[in-house]
Design a protein around this nucleic acid. Structure first.
Lengths: 362, 362
DNA sequence: AGGATTTGTGAGAACGTTCTCGCAAGTCTC
DNA sequence: GAGACTTGCGAGAACGTTCTCACAAATCCT
């Protein structure tokens, strides 16, 4: 009497029914070691017939590899980064035979820490992280990471020897400023998203994400290179919250001599500019100009389209996955800091003050 | 001489160092069965000291539960559904102690099939799926699913006894039409995203996603109830592609008697309207009106803001996770078809033809 | 005080794979 | 035709947990 084949068929059931040993069945199905072609075919047929599905957990257990990578990301609604990066990572991973375990930190260090612990416990083979920290955190040590490879995306943590895939934010910011200067703008407003501040402030906060830091430096460099005096620049560092950013925009506009253009460090800030402009019946690209960072279909579809620094987020994600998988499958790859080029996409949101000087009141 | 403690410490190492058996160590750490409080404390201390991290794969193996749910979603850039749903699912799952394995079908049945097989092999405890199919597919049978619970979101598959969490798309569409009628619109253009058509067509394709179907029916019902004759309505079914949808919008506008308002079935279509309007210097809310389904911060921030039927996507995701987990932890829950209420958010994208009849040429 | 119950622990099987050996039979080499 | 090599397969350990069972010691009850 055959054993009660209760539940899902395992490889034992297949082996039994095919009249071979577990080992042979395994070889036949997973295609390794020495196996007679006829036997293999037979086993596979039997497996098919039985509706056998391998148990990947058992495989992972035995092999010490889960074929899974962990994604630790900050999910943010407007920031197009989240969905584009997630999609990029998931698709690239699948192509390389990996699945993605996704976790979300709300830009919160404690959440990031616990997410990473969970992922490590789940035995992911590697991690892709958008690090929330700016200083070197203690949960990213090789020990805590179980010596699993890790790749940062979007942000570096300077001083930490970790592969990171970012974009040329400094150059992008520079280019944005050069663009507005070339159109005759002379009074510039900068609206910078900064975690750690409440509301908004003119003082530059000490700790900023590398991405933000780069953008600030790029903005500042190009402004200075363009001969824009500090008093012609207004810098506002702002909590990443609609209420705060809208208040900051109003402050910008309510100065005695308001800027003719606002450059924002991310799309949350751009959104605030759009809203306040809408409320005040100001026309973008005429009454007030706007440049932001990170493209989106919406920014393109608006009238006028918003001029942006477009970042190759999908490509960034792909590369991150490729680097990670390379390091998983052949450990000991050198760390790299890769920054992908960005592109200024000029649309109609920046007024041409040279052709139409009437738009600019000194 | 103690055993060479190579690699990461396991529960055996903890047990050894604590001077207890594996079983006791397990009890101490996982908090079950009978265990002396002092022993437990001691074991935990030792574990801490050793930097022990449980191996969740081994746990899953033994327990037959991975504490992981699979998410099968269609990643789509503009469709705000993807990111909002993903975030909703991930957050809700974490709160209930589950992790999320995410896969992306590009609205492709074969990809969906293979994604589901992979997830089942990875032994997820349950699945949340945005089904691409409209007819009953063979990869969603209990057998293929290993009897794992499954919940559909965003779409039903009629005739399949599966719990689904959707929104009241019929009512939302109705309300959208009632809204435009109340503002005096009489000639209506409907732009419906439809997979399976090439370009666009006036003939209604046979197989549509339940969501789309509901929206069409809602639109049609309210138009008919409002006394809008068929010849005052133009229906275009359109491939979900920028080129196709923009061509469709142009066709809509280039009719001898174009509609005063376009109602779109999703935001890809709305995007096309915005772009074409922008190209033709038509002002939204004046020269042409627009209503779409699914809100986004961008639609709110534009000037004028776009009137939308807002759907509670995060709530939908939460409920899906809760229902799924309930069914995982206590199998045999009844199937439910839940549809969450939607809300019309009136903004400035629909012209008031009653107050300003000059905007309307008969 | 003696039996009944409770408490705490350990031995060992089990989850479903893969992998290392070893061995028998077949094939090559000269 | 005898040794060397190759091929194909099976036995059994291993991965790191949990869980069942058994049992000794401690506690309870009357």
């Amino acid at each position: 009497m055959p054993k009660a084949s209760t539940g899902k068929p395992t490889i034992v059931d297949v082996a039994e029914k095919a009249g071979v040993s577990r080992a042979t069945a395994s070889r036949a199905l997973s295609n390794y070691g020495r196996i007679n072609a006829a036997t293999q075919l037979h086993v596979r047929r039997v497996a098919e017939e039985l509706g056998y599905r391998p148990n990947e957990v058992a495989k992972a257990m035995r092999r010490g590899k889960t074929k899974t990578i962990g994604l630790v990301i900050v999910a943010d609604f407007t920031n197009a980064f989240f969905d584009r990066a997630t999609k990029g990572v998931v698709d690239a991973a699948r192509e390389l035979g990996y699945q993605v375990l996704i976790t979300n930190t709300n830009e919160d260090l404690a959440a990031e820490r616990s997410a990473i612990i969970t992922l490590i416990e789940k035995q992911v083979d590697g991690l892709i992280v958008v690090p929330a920290a700016t200083a070197i955190p203690d949960h990213l040590t090789p020990d805590q990471l179980d010596n699993k490879p890790i790749v940062f995306i979007d942000r570096r943590i300077d001083g930490l020897q970790v592969t990171s895939i970012t974009t040329e934010d400094f150059q992008g910011a520079e280019e944005a400023v050069r663009h507005v200067l070339s159109l005759g703008h002379k009074r510039l407003g900068f609206l910078i998203a900064a975690s750690g501040v409440a509301g908004f402030t003119q003082e530059r906060p000490p700790l900023l994400l590398s991405t933000v830091e780069d953008r600030i430096n790029g903005f500042a460099k190009a402004a200075s290179d363009g001969g824009i005096k500090p008093k012609m620049q207004t810098w506002l560092y702002c909590e990443d919250l609609p209420s705060a950013s809208e208040a900051a925009v109003m402050r910008l506009l309510d100065q005695p001599k308001p800027p003719s253009v606002i450059l924002t460090s991310n799309n949350d800030m751009a959104l605030a500019v759009l809203k306040v402009a809408g409320n005040r019946q100001l026309t973008i690209g005429k009454d007030i100009s706007l440049v932001t960072i990170d493209d989106s279909q919406w920014l393109e579809a608006m009238s006028p389209g918003i001029t942006v620094v477009a970042r190759p987020v999908e490509e960034l994600s792909r590369i991150a996955v490729e680097k990670l998988v390379a390091n998983i499958e052949e450990p000991g790859q050198p760390e790299e800091q890769i920054a992908l080029p960005v592109e200024l996409v000029a649309r109609g949101s920046v007024a041409n003050l040279i052709l139409r000087p009437e738009l600019w009141m000194e």
